[in-house]
Amino acid sequence: MEFNWPHMAASAVIIAIVLFLLKKTKLTDNAGTGKRVLITAIALFIPLFILNLVWPYSAG
């Protein structure tokens, strides 16, 4: 198994941007722990799912 470094870098950038935007918009400030985790998971899932549709991990 080989690592696809560009795909991992793109994923890391997407994760960093999403977490930055969530903190900047204060979307999860007044949410409980469960709601905050759910919002974060959905916010990360959507762009990473789109990335993997456009650029599958094994397509290197």
Rank of each mutant, 00 (worst) to 15 (best):
T25D: 00
I17Y: 08
S11Q: 10
G60S: 14
K35S: 12
I14E: 00
K35R: 13
H7F: 14
L21E: 08
I46K: 02
M1G: 15
V13K: 03
W5S: 14
R36Y: 12
A12M: 07
L38C: 05
I14T: 04
G34M: 06
R36C: 07
V13M: 04
I15A: 11
W55L: 09
I17K: 10
L53Y: 12
L48Q: 06
I15R: 06
W5D: 15
A43C: 06
P47I: 05
F45Y: 14
K26G: 10
M1P: 13
A12Q: 05
L48E: 02
T25G: 00
K24L: 12
E2F: 15
N30R: 11
T33R: 12
I39Y: 03
I42N: 07
N30G: 12
T33A: 13
K24S: 09
L22S: 00
M1S: 15
F49K: 09
L48G: 01
Y57T: 07
A10E: 08
N52H: 12
T28K: 05
K24I: 02
L51Y: 09
I15K: 06
P56R: 07
L44H: 03
L27C: 01
M8V: 10
I46L: 10
V54C: 10
I42R: 04
G34S: 06
I46R: 01
I14W: 00
M1D: 15
F49E: 07
T33K: 10
P6Q: 02
K26P: 01
Y57D: 11
A16N: 10
L21F: 12
A31G: 00
V18W: 03
A43Q: 00
A9D: 02
K35A: 13
T28L: 00
E2G: 13
G60T: 15
G32R: 01
H7S: 07
M1N: 15
T40M: 06
A12E: 03
A10H: 03
N30E: 12
L19G: 02
W55E: 05
R36W: 07
P6H: 04
I46S: 03
F49W: 14
L48W: 01
T40G: 03
I14C: 00
A12S: 12
L21W: 11
M8K: 09
L27V: 04
I42Y: 08
G32C: 05
A9H: 07
A12N: 03
A41N: 03
L44D: 01
I42M: 10
K23A: 10
P6G: 02
I15E: 01
